[in-house]
């Protein structure tokens, strides 16, 4: 089951949030060696405030099998604050209707190509559905540019905001590489692409579920 939560729900889902922040520590600090602020074995940063929206795919025994966080760029933007050079399309990466996704985790209980696809498709479809409901225009994120083909597999409508740029000393340095900013236009076609990718398309045609007009941006959760 996919839960859509904010930190306001922390009281009613205390254990789940603790597990979630611990999982982030395992995946990003221990697993990928990122230097991120850590408290009591949990990774929590400045973007974890009341405006962040969390999508958590919770399986049997409350185990988190996928998670993603989105944050409104009008308030704080990782891209605008730390990676402005990645944006080369002449447009501002900040807008009330643009959110950023970060801390993407997919760890299905069984590890196979199909399970990964399904888990990935499920969590991203949930995030896109929410974004359509809340009248967003774009979701954007920073990726390692080597991973771009996997995002294009997810939806060919993935658009670059600029060219790849070196980070952490570039590709010749261990732990370094090249990164780039990408975005998805928020529309039913992208949601359909993702559902098709995850094999979710037969369950519920997205076009029918989201045929109603998008809500005005004034109703955005802030």
């Amino acid at each position: 089951m996919i839960l859509t939560l904010t930190l306001r729900d922390r009281g009613s889902h205390a254990a789940l949030f603790s597990e979630y922040f611990r999982l982030r520590h395992d995946v990003f600090v221990k697993g990928r060696g990122w230097s991120l602020p850590t408290t009591n074995g949990m990774e929590i940063d400045q973007y974890d405030d009341n405006d962040a929206v969390y999508f958590l795919d919770v399986g049997e025994q409350e185990r988190i099998q996928a998670a993603i966080r989105i944050t409104p760029t009008i308030k704080s933007s990782l891209i605008a604050d730390y990676f402005p050079h990645l944006v080369e399309n002449g447009q501002s990466p900040r807008s009330p209707s643009i959110y950023e996704c970060t801390r993407y985790i997919v760890i299905p209980p069984r590890k196979s190509r199909d399970d990964n696809r399904l888990a990935k498709g499920r969590i991203i479809a949930a995030m896109l559905g929410w974004s359509i409901d809340h009248g967003l225009t774009y979701l954007q994120t920073v990726i390692d540019s080597v991973a771009l083909p996997t995002y294009l597999e997810l939806t060919p409508r993935t658009m670059p905001l600029g060219l790849p740029h070196p980070y952490g000393g570039g590709r010749k340095t261990p732990g370094g590489g090249e990164c780039m900013a990408i975005r998805w236009p928020i529309c039913t076609q992208v949601l359909d692409d993702v559902r098709q990718y995850g094999g979710l398309i037969e369950i519920e045609p997205a076009a029918a579920a989201y045929a109603r007009p998008a809500q005005p941006t004034a109703q955005l959760i802030h």
Binding site: P84, E88, N89, G90, S92, P93, P156, R157, G162, L163
Partner: peptide
């Protein structure tokens, strides 16, 4: 601030036309 050079402009334009 967010304007790219000739390489970026060409490439982003290339991608946009390619997708059509």
């Amino acid at each position: 601030m967010f304007n790219g050079d000739e390489y970026a402009k060409r490439t982003l334009d290339f991608v946009e036309r390619l997708q059509q």
